[in-house]
Design a binder for these strands. Structure first.
Lengths: 214, 214
DNA sequence: TCCCAAATGTGGATACTGTACACAATTACA
DNA sequence: TGTAATTGTGTACAGTATCCACATTTGGGA
């Protein structure tokens, strides 16, 4: 029985067209299912129907691919936060509105972490510096990255005189720490077994703590 | 030139003696230098001067080895926290003492994360459940795990009437979230470039936020 | 229009990794 | 003392990243 050499590609053209994009898409799917570890170079090329080495024409190495996937995931996080912020209803006074906005940023962050744990972990699997935290590749529809949305919300609190100016410095890192830490405990820490409503509840408690403590 | 087959072990006995321990020790060194990813089964066996497969007599697979290393690292974290708590001076009133104790737990946690980032990451690289958070393998000299030390500090706050009882429930997760999140931002997040004094400063700010916000 | 250089994809090879299976040396105990 | 359990070894396989040489296609100047 002659072995059928059907392995050769379904692709008809020698050139792929947009391999870089295809690799990132495949990487997103792998990350969604298995986190950053699952973003395996050879598997992404298999899914893009291309030889493993073709990836090296678009990424220096596996880490560079993971970084690109990470930025994409960060952008999805940004969009979830935007959704949450956009869903805020009207508030009587500016102070309540500013508070609601900060809460929405935190709740959106936590919601994404629970809905897409693999992508969330991948987004933060590559060391983030402030440069990257401002990169447009990590931004949502509004053009703001998650970090920038948090910064804007805190500026709003100052403007609404909820947060005294002398407490503003470093506030983004305090708020970020709390929410990020909870996200991790919810995903693969001791809180991962909780029911969704319980997770929601503790998320709201945490946001309350931040509002009081800042 | 006859190849010198000196590759054979420096070990004289066929049995190692305490291979399990040796593998964990080697794993700790690898984790210290490179985090959980660096805990590679074959390298640990090389360092223990033993064939790769020997590890399987003591651990079901690589993950089991990493888990053991993780518990060891958690125990080192517990000891650092104990040190910090032990260094608290006398306080006039019970309320101040209870507050100081909670702060010390947080500061010790952050100190360990900065002093031993690889071990810290390894300690949390394996999904923690409350079972594990109470395991003696993860405890320090006092027999308490980091989580248990936090719990005890919060109980102390209630007893000293600093924390109202109705805020006690879930408080460990709120405090833990904040401190853990900051630890991560300091290690490989956007704050990793800060000077040690700045890191110390933001750590104290965060602990203050938690004390106010709980 | 032709041709060459740049861009992109392929094939083959190397050096790692984890881990399964059969076997060997040692120890413990009945 | 002999036999079974324990512990370590050797070989093998599949999967991974990545290097180098080569092939194909495309785009831009002559």
């Amino acid at each position: 029985m002659p072995k059928t050499p059907v392995k050769r590609s379904r692709r008809s053209t020698y050139r792929h067209g947009d391999l870089r994009r295809a690799l990132i898409e495949a990487g997103i799917e792998l990350a969604r299912a298995g986190g950053p570890e699952a973003v395996v170079l050879r598997e992404t090329t298999r899914r893009a129907d291309v030889a493993p080495n073709a990836a090296y024409r678009h990424f220096a190495d596996r880490q560079a691919l993971v970084q690109a996937v990470s930025e994409e995931a960060m952008s999805l996080l940004a969009k979830t936060i935007e959704e949450e912020v956009g869903a805020i209803g009207q508030r009587k006074d500016a102070a309540a509105a500013a508070r609601a906005r900060l809460s929405a940023v935190g709740i959106g962050y936590l919601r994404f972490a629970q809905a897409e744990p693999g992508l969330f972990q991948t987004a933060f699997s590559v060391p983030v510096d402030l440069q990257l935290a401002a990169s447009t590749a990590s931004a949502g529809e509004s053009g703001l990255t998650p970090f920038q949305q948090l910064t804007a919300a805190l500026d709003g609190l100052v403007e609404a005189k909820v947060l005294p100016l002398e407490r503003r410095m470093g506030a983004e890192f305090l708020a970020w720490s709390a929410v990020h830490g909870l996200a991790i405990l919810l995903i693969d820490g001791p809180l991962r077994g909780l029911e969704p409503e319980q997770k929601q509840g503790i998320g709201e408690m945490l946001v309350g703590m931040v509002q009081r403590g800042l």
